[in-house]
Nucleic acid binder design. Structure first.
Lengths: 132, 132
DNA sequence: TAATCCATTTACGCTCACGTCAACCTCGTA
DNA sequence: TACGAGGTTGACGTGAGCGTAAATGGATTA
C-alpha cells in the first residue's frame, strides 16, 4: 500500500518545477529514485524529499545546505560521537538562522504595512480629487 | 547633526561584507552615495539602505526585488494610479511570501527539534555504554 | 621624495541553480 | 512499420552575486 510511485513529469507538474530541476537535485544527491530500465521511478519518500527541498529553498537554504540536513537525518542512528556533535552544531546554527528570520520577517512586514497604508491613502486622494 | 558620514570600508567592516559588494549594490541601483572627488561618501540614509539590503537578503529576496521595494518606497508620493496599484500588488505578494515563510519556518523548526532530540538521545547512549 | 594606505575603474573569473538544445532510446498505438 | 509521447544522457548557455587581480589616483607618513 505504500508502493505508490510517480514519474518524473508527474512530480514536475505537481510541484510546478521542471524535470531538469528534479534531475539536478538528483545530481546533487538530494533524491535517489529507483529505476525501471533507465527510467526513473519516484517513491513517496522521494516525493516528500522534493517537498522538503522546495520548503528549504523558500527559506533561502542552498541545495548544499539542504543536502547536509538530509544526510544528517539519514545517518543519525549510526554515528560517532564527533559526528553527533557536529550535527547538533548544524542544527543549532540553522535554528539560530530561523530565529533571525522570524525577527526579520516581523520587521519587514511592519514596513510593508506602512507602505501599503501610504499607497491606499494616495489612491484615495486620487479618487476624491479628479485634478490629475 | 544628521550629517554623519561613512567611508566604504567603514561600512564594509560594520556589516561584515566586502567593499566589492557595496559597490556592486551601487551598480544595481540600491545605494547612491555622494562623492568627494571620486571617493564615495555614505550618509546615514545609505547606511540604513545597507541594513535593509542585508535583511532582505537574509529573507531570500534578490537584489532586484529589494531594489523594486526601494523604488516603490522612494516614489510613492508622486505616482499615478496605475503605479500605485502595481505597488499594492507587489506589497501584497511580498506579504504573502512572508506569510508562507512563517509557516515554513514553523515546520522546519519542528523538524529540527526532533532531529536534535534524536541526536541528544544518541549521545546519551554513547556515554552510558562505553562499548564503541 | 618615497613609501604606504585607502580609494577608484575595468574586466575577467567563478559558483549556484538551473535553461536549453541535441541526440538517442522505448513503448504503445494508428 | 512508422511515429508520437514520454523518457534518458551529455554538454553548453545563462543570470545573479559577487571574488579577484591589475592598473591607477590622491592623501598622509617616514
Amino acid at each position: 500500500m505504500n508502493d505508490k510511485t510517480y514519474s518524473i513529469s508527474n512530480l514536475a507538474k505537481e510541484f510546478d518545477i521542471t524535470t531538469r530541476s528534479i534531475r539536478f537535485y538528483e545530481d546533487q544527491g538530494l533524491v535517489y529514485p529507483s529505476r525501471r530500465g533507465q527510467t526513473r521511478i519516484y517513491s513517496k519518500r522521494d516525493r516528500v524529499r522534493l517537498m522538503l527541498i522546495l520548503r528549504g529553498k523558500r527559506l533561502g537554504f542552498s541545495l548544499a545546505e539542504i543536502r547536509e540536513l538530509f544526510d544528517l537525518y539519514d545517518a543519525s542512528p549510526t554515528n560517532s560521537e564527533a559526528q553527533l556533535k557536529r550535527m547538533l552544531n548544524i542544527i543549532q546554527d540553522k535554528n539560530a538562522a530561523l530565529e533571525q528570520q522570524i525577527k526579520d520577517i516581523a520587521i519587514v512586514k511592519l514596513e510593508l504595512e506602512t507602505a501599503e497604508q501610504r499607497c491606499l491613502l494616495a489612491l484615495e486622494s486620487h479618487q476624491t480629487s479628479d485634478a490629475s
